[in-house]
Design a protein around this nucleic acid. Structure first.
Lengths: 332, 332
DNA sequence: TAGTATGATGTAAGCGCTTTCATTTGTAAC
DNA sequence: GTTACAAATGAAAGCGCTTACATCATACTA
């Protein structure tokens, strides 16, 4: 592999000049620029990014930490983030935190040890305090799907409460009065907010809330099935179930069918997230859209702007969910 | 951030010694080692990986190129690869090639410019010759889901033909005689092989093959629906459809229902891949398992062994698919 | 014509490590 | 107490770049 030195010799200029045309940050006479470019071309020169990083104290790499790499959820996020950075000549290093505090912390220091210029974190287990400390240590990062007051200007979030509200309102507008709710782990911020939205819709329609109608799941399919069975046993008058995510909704669909309910007439079900498989279910799942891709793009823009001083588009930090109507909800 | 120099001063030894305890590659007296470790601890020293890379000509990073980051397919692959490397202290840089020749080539040189020690490629559009040239240029890489004779010892593949055979045989064993086939783009190697397996099973059971029963899709849901409609129109006696992947099978399920066929009695359908959503369909999809995760792990092992001289476990290059029986196949 | 900005280029000092080679220290044999 | 050899350590030269600073030519002013 040719080095900058060989290019400079061939072009008959100094190292510094080659570096200047490479980085395009200091004026170089057009004539010299062309000579240098020709020399690069001739040698098939490719700058060594490691050396560039060491000298400039910039790695041009961004670390991404998500709970899981598999599963239906994070593909879009990663895809859109990678795309944005790729266009800007940056690259992406990935790690999975598995919603575990220790693993999340390890992953963060792993990414730091890789000299990432910035991190995009989708963390769940780590405390707010930890994140604030991280900020105080001058670590550059953006939070996705989590709001920490002290970090307000680097949080890209979904209005989860509004999403929960929309889901339940949709059921209420269809005339349902007995609505079961299958929640995610309530210690997770998004689960809590979605549930709050649910309660708000109920209040707005003057429907009292009952403990009987609540089930706390774990966001996985199985708990959706379990929850459905539990709810329907406790309160068979239920005509609709709001699930805090699509996976649990899929489980609910299966369980309802097993219990002999026809769908959607015998039981209406709504999900949340609009993951890639949600229209493969039968009936196709009505759900709340989570604009993961958009949010990923925005996180990338934010970093491009703040860390690399590229890009001046304005930054949006809160995204609004919306209803996706398909076939799993009808009148009772 | 503390540097190796500060550690050496604090410990009262030379740079070289600190480097030695860090890399553990040259004997160091236990007493000195402890002094050095204590100094590192005290300063919270973290080696600068960029400097390490430059000096050692090793980046400890592996580039992964897959067709898509989203979609149900590559999450598991990435997840298992990341995991394996993480444990070995390496990290993973990702890129998407979108099954496009130009993009695939760009991505490869992008990853190379990032000084990856090795690449794991899941490419589709690039030619065999290109890959052979890459090898001749001494680029270290492993191919996933693609077999190139000259590169036989660095190809991790699935026995796609056997998979296709298993799928069709399953239908035949259930007594189906008129079996439609919805293929992937036949220029793709895996699509071709799966189809060959289908034909082999047919031959084995003495069933003649007819053009009427073949439809070439594009591996996406919609073409599964289109294909089903086309096949059922051309040959309404069809009682089973073999689909070359799960997404098309999902489309087939929907289309069959729209056409008034009951499932699976009125039409049996089988998929291929066993992607994450395949048990969310209704009826739950019978399919052929694709051990993506295993294959990813193996690719990582291969690189760990050949490039980093770690790990001595034996390498398996061909993986066998197997049948996953669920609810979408019955007797005609 | 000398004096002074201005733009273009060169010089050289790092960035934080690894690694070769030379040197010192410790140990055992005589 | 020498000598011989192995083990442990240190000195210093890079790895391929960026960038502060110095230098040089050119063009303009007075």
């Amino acid at each position: 592999m040719a080095t900058i030195y060989e290019v400079s010799k061939l072009a008959g200029v100094s190292l510094a000049t080659v570096s200047r045309v490479l980085n395009n940050n200091t004026p170089v006479k057009e004539e010299t620029r062309l000579k240098v470019l020709a020399a690069m071309e001739e040698l098939g020169y490719q700058p060594n990014s490691v050396a560039q990083s060491l000298a400039s104290n910039r790695s041009n790499s961004i670390g991404i930490l998500v709970p899981e790499l598999n599963g239906p959820f994070f593909g879009t996020l990663l895809s859109d983030i990678e795309n944005s950075f790729r266009q800007a000549g940056k690259h992406v290093i990935i790690a999975a935190g598995h919603s575990d505090e220790k693993l999340e912390k390890e992953s963060i220091s792993f990414l730091q040890s890789r000299n990432c210029d910035a991190l995009i974190l989708h963390v769940e287990a780590v405390t707010d305090e930890y994140l604030v400390e991280l900020m105080e240590k001058k670590v550059k990062f953006v939070l996705i799907n989590r709001f920490v007051p002290q970090l307000y200007d680097r949080c890209i979030t979904l209005n989860n409460q509004h999403g929960g509200y929309l889901a339940t309102r949709h059921m209420l507008e269809h005339g349902h009065q007995n609505i079961g709710y299958i929640s995610g782990p309530i210690w997770k911020h998004d689960a809590e907010q979605r549930y709050k939205g649910h309660l708000r819709a109920l209040t707005e329609f003057g429907i009292p809330h009952s403990e009987q109608l609540f089930y706390e799941g774990d966001y996985h399919e199985e708990s959706g099935a379990l929850g459905t069975k539990a709810l329907l046993q406790k309160a068979s008058e239920i005509t609709a179930i709001v699930c805090a995510n699509d996976e649990m909704a899929a489980g609910a669909l299966t369980a309802a069918r097993e219990l002999g309910r026809s769908l959607p007439d015998g039981l209406s079900i709504i999900g949340f997230d609009n993951v890639n498989f949600s229209h493969y279910t039968f009936p196709k799942l009505t759900t709340i859209n989570y604009p993961m891709g958009e949010m990923g793009k925005m996180a990338a823009q934010l970093i491009l702007k703040r860390v690399y001083q590229q890009n001046n588009s304005s930054i949006q930090t809160v995204f609004e969910p919306h209803l996706i109507e398909r076939d799993s909800v009808s009148r009772p």
